[in-house]
Simulated scan of single mutants.
Amino acid sequence: MIAAGAEESRTAAIADAKRLLRLSRTAALATLGADGSPLTTWVGCASDLDGAPLFLLSTLAQHTKNLAGDARGSLLLTSPPDRGDPLNHPRLTVGGPIAPHSDPYARRRYLQRNPKAKLYAPFVDFAIHRMRIEAVHFNGGFGRADKLVPADILAPPGEAAALTDAEDVLLAEINAAEGLAAQLAGRREAGRRVWRAIGLDAEGLDLAAGGAAARVGFPAPAFEPQAWRRRLADALASSSP
């Protein structure tokens, strides 16, 4: 019974950690100065296809200067403010080296999740950076501090070229269907909030409406577009009343 309970707790922790990694669009980034002094700053973030954190950083910012001297960083991801004690909500800390990342696909993913960054993304001092996760610390709230490793929270390796090539088409299909994104997000209320699909990966779909975000997770990864569509259709069917 204890083993079963521990496994359920670990499964829930992995799900919470993946959700935070995929849906967080701002986070606290800790870096080390030339004299070893720590600095924590508030930054925008997104996730690469495998879940690795992406940042749009300016060379003029102190945290970027720190990373140029010591690439090690630590990132704290939290849930949006909610009712109750904020310390009883899940949070995730990931750590590892952060380096410039010139992949155009990563840049597109970042801007899909942080559209307001398009105002300054073209400036010459801004560039996409990527963290290679080497350490994970998860705290799910009081009494929940499951031990996780990078492989637990990153998407499993697979040949995802076809999925990345089809991402724009798949997102357009979802956003073109009236009310589908809101239904996938689990929101059926009327109002001015417009839900849109903003990114995908082999394990699911990310959606956003203003500052709100939601994720549709798959029980198993899908690396081919048709298989991905079937996973999404299954998720939609299972969420319907």
Rank of each mutant, 00 (worst) to 15 (best):
G204V: 12
D70M: 04
R144M: 05
A185V: 04
I128R: 01
A213Q: 13
K116L: 15
L205E: 02
D168S: 13
L20T: 13
T41Y: 02
A181N: 01
E134L: 02
L184P: 09
P122L: 07
V216L: 13
P122E: 12
L56V: 12
R22C: 11
A13M: 04
L29D: 08
W228F: 10
A46T: 09
G211F: 03
L236K: 10
A106T: 11
L119N: 11
R108F: 01
Q62Y: 05
G84D: 08
S102R: 14
D82I: 00
A182R: 13
P115A: 03
F123Q: 11
L49S: 05
L184M: 10
A160L: 12
I98H: 02
R19L: 08
P219W: 09
G95K: 00
S79V: 15
K18H: 08
I128Q: 03
D16Q: 15
P219L: 05
L119D: 14
G186Q: 09
R132Y: 00
Q226D: 15
N66L: 10
A28W: 07
H63N: 10
P104A: 06
T31L: 00
A208C: 11
F223G: 11
P122H: 08
T11C: 07
A127L: 01
I133T: 13
Q226Y: 13
E203Y: 02
P115K: 04
A46M: 05
K116S: 15
